[in-house]
Computed example of a mutant assay.
Amino acid sequence: MAKRDAPELDRELAELPPELRWREWMRRVEAVLFASASPVPREDLARVVGQGASVELLVEDLAVDLEGRSFEVAKVGDGWVLRTRVAYAPAIRAAADLGDPVTDLKEFDVAVLAAIAYHQPITRDGLKDIFGKEISRELIGRLHARELIAPGPRAPRRGAPYTFVTTEAFLAHFGLESLRDLPDREGLSDAGLTDEG
């Protein structure tokens, strides 16, 4: 069966009055965010709206349009995602098959992930210094397979060790726009959630 050519997308929608044109662009942005498994950057959203349209304003209007609904637009890294509001997490856990790649991580795995987030780029030796023991290649492999970490920059010398950094999937899973949104380490320590003094 021959593949049919997709019709060209009318980005400008010149035949629509301005108000309807804006609403259609907003719905296109919503559809792209809904269908995407990862954060969608501005450049990709700009491909479905008119040349003079502000993607940022469209996303803002979509966020307002979704107020009072069970999901919201969230900024993650350099892009946006649609995600369920935190208030509905218990209902989702009670009834939905999440297939979440992070839920089967052990407590130590999550601690290593947090150490990478706070100290990135970090080497396995750097992690060993933090935890007082060698971090297994299997653990690093699990975090990498789930796309929560990725290789980071290496020193420009021969034999320099590999480093690790967190990814946009990490940000999305933990509901962060950027690493600046991580909880303050001093506050975590004061709350007794870390071993740091």
Rank of each mutant, 00 (worst) to 15 (best):
A2T: 08
K3W: 02
D5K: 14
P18G: 13
R27D: 00
F34T: 09
A35D: 06
S38N: 08
P39E: 07
D44T: 11
R47P: 02
G50M: 06
Q51C: 00
A53W: 01
D65T: 12
L66E: 06
E67Y: 01
G68Y: 06
S70T: 12
S70G: 02
E72Y: 01
K75N: 05
V76Q: 00
W80E: 02
T84P: 02
A89V: 15
R93V: 02
G99C: 02
V102Y: 06
L105S: 04
E107V: 11
V110I: 15
V110Q: 12
L113I: 09
L113H: 10
H119C: 13
P121F: 08
I122H: 09
T123M: 12
T123Q: 14
G126F: 09
K133I: 01
I135D: 04
R137Q: 13
R142H: 14
L143Y: 03
H144D: 03
R146Q: 10
E147S: 04
P151K: 13
R158V: 14
G159L: 12
Y162K: 14
T166Q: 09
F170M: 06
F170H: 09
L171Y: 07
L176K: 01
E177Q: 08
L182W: 14
L182A: 04
R185D: 00
D190V: 08
L193W: 06
E196G: 00
G197H: 08
G197P: 15
